[in-house]
Write a protein that binds this DNA or RNA. Structure first.
Length: 109
DNA sequence: GTCCTGACTCTTC
DNA sequence: TGAAGAGCCAGGA
């Protein structure tokens, strides 16, 4: 656990994402120190499969596209999860992403 | 021990 | 304005 210091930080932020909201990889990376690459955040998500407390489906790319939907087992699993939380998803992209966007640097900090 | 890949983002041509 | 390339860190082979 502690060995994944960086991963744990990412999970901690993702875990605090309120229901009905979503954030981007870059925002999390920036919140962690802006020195971390957004790729690392995505990589952390890749290892979050054993973390049921980590809503990876709430983490999308800068355009609000469900880039990692394919990693959820089903290309629609991520979309359905978001819809269940009240987040509108269309064409694999979050509708009104600007409205559901959650900035950890502004909400947490 | 070294090389490649990876769920992204930013800068430059 | 649109597209392409480079950069970041960590894990796996």
């Amino acid at each position: 656990m502690e060995s994944k210091n960086f991963f744990d930080d990412v999970y901690d932020v993702v875990r605090q994402i309120p229901v009905g909201r979503a954030t981007s990889y870059g925002s999390i990376a920036k919140f962690l120190g802006s020195k971390l690459s957004a790729r690392m955040v995505g990589w952390a998500m890749n290892a979050c499969h054993g973390m049921p407390d980590v809503p990876a489906h709430r983490v999308v790319n800068r355009n609000g596209v469900l880039s990692g939907k394919h990693f959820f087992g089903s290309p629609t699993a991520m979309q359905e999860l978001l819809e269940q939380e009240g987040i509108g998803v269309e064409n694999d992209k979050i509708k009104n992403f600007k409205n559901v966007y959650w900035d950890p640097s502004a909400e947490l900090l």
